[in-house]
Design a protein around this nucleic acid. Sequence first.
DNA 1: CGATATTTTGAAATAATTCAAAGGCAGTGG
DNA 2: CCACTGCCTTTGAATTATTTCAAAATATCG
Lengths: 266, 266
Amino acid sequence: MITACVHVAIREYWNINGGGLLVNGKSEKNKGALATIAANHIPELKDFFSHGEVQCFKRGETVFSEGQAITQIIDLVSGCASVSRNGKNGRRQILAFVGARQFIGGASTALYPNSVVALTNVEAIAYPKSVLEQAVAIAPEFAKHFQILLVNMIESRDDHIFAIGQRTANERLASFLLHLRNNQARFSTGGARYQSNRIDLPMSRVDISDYLGLSVETISRAFSWLKRQGVINFSDSTQCEIVDLPRIQEFGGSDDFTHHRGSAQT
Amino acid sequence: MITACVHVAIREYWNINGGGLLVNGKSEKNKGALATIAANHIPELKDFFSHGEVQCFKRGETVFSEGQAITQIIDLVSGCASVSRNGKNGRRQILAFVGARQFIGGASTALYPNSVVALTNVEAIAYPKSVLEQAVAIAPEFAKHFQILLVNMIESRDDHIFAIGQRTANERLASFLLHLRNNQARFSTGGARYQSNRIDLPMSRVDISDYLGLSVETISRAFSWLKRQGVINFSDSTQCEIVDLPRIQEFGGSDDFTHHRGSAQT
DNA sequence: CGATATTTTGAAATAATTCAAAGGCAGTGG
DNA sequence: CCACTGCCTTTGAATTATTTCAAAATATCG
């Protein structure tokens, strides 16, 4: 029943000219999370992650499918994907949107419990699971940084749980837009902007609704409401501009985000 | 403004006779998560975690408070606590219930972003943060097992997100009861039963409502509904019996739990 | 340009909340 | 031992937020 690696067959490579992203002369922003850790912090692992297989996925393609045996770790270099769980009765919950320098394939089980789909064209590097295990085994400093990634994932989930459990529809959307704003370096298609007020929305309204636990119509109404309040504006439906940051922060409860609460301040 | 370690003053020790839980002759079940990993898998760290400070908290006491500087890791040995985030407008979301062999204090930030409160009397062992860091640094095998703990936390969060985002009130409660059933070794007060149909509820209805993102009244109605359906029964309000397991599994969508989806099966 | 999918808007239905009160249980003091 | 108090839980009725069903507007694609 397992359809592991079927996606490899239908995948196409594009815009990659060298033998791998790390050796074709491009810098930093063409690395995934694991290679970035190694490059920045662990001299002895400098070249450890340069042998990954470059994999590209087109918008809509499946990166990881539910129940697939986990043989490799996929580390995003660019683009955006959704990690979701599909319930029995047709219900779908998007657990996270992942972008540049986020990895996929971590699980405590033999089979991957979620489904990962590319929302835009995605460039990634795939490593055998054993490569990650080895890096952890031989470089304690790498293990430490890898743990920080995992803790960050927990904290994102906690923010998400708070949003879904406690906020109204309008508030959820506001906090989602702020989340995207805080992670533009990962999600924005047009390069690595950071906390610009121009927010790319690489995902559809349905994706947003499945992420926030609401119906599409409610998402659409929430967008309209925010527009009517004068806090956002649209050029087209995939790009919105935050016009009144303080007010959307108030709606979205940005005080309640982990990174806001956890930083030492006077 | 930080009230770090104030709780140390009001804490009382009880029922601890030796110089520490690990050296007073009691076995396995008196260890926290970290010591258990070391004892089971890493011979060279056998005694590494025996020097933690035993800390006990009474029902209602604060174990970790929001904004507290993280200096130590607290590893539960017995009892149950809630990890919650308190929003600005009085909203509270419980992110997780933690029990035996679960640790508290992992965060990517300098200040702990959540609040941890004992729901029953709690025995724990506190280690300086540096002890955990050292264990990871000197024993790769420990790092590996510690990562599994973190991944388990992510998967629990994912189950939680699915429940809050996709399920109705009745379904959420059903899936919560199944969650407790799957984790009786952590939560059950009367020793380490596993998947018995007698479920201890160490938390109040308000706690459950804040965990599931519903109002207390809705939780109460959901309990009554499950009772009316003939799937559960109560002796008192803190202990319920699952009478019809298949049916509560259907309501609770147990198919959608990580551990059900991720295990290899034929 | 026409056809299809996505997004937005409207009106009715429903699930969950809020407000209000009653019932149950534990602890305290007479 | 019983009555009293306070807290937690349950139930009821009205209100509200969100969903569902339906259709119009807008964007996308061949």
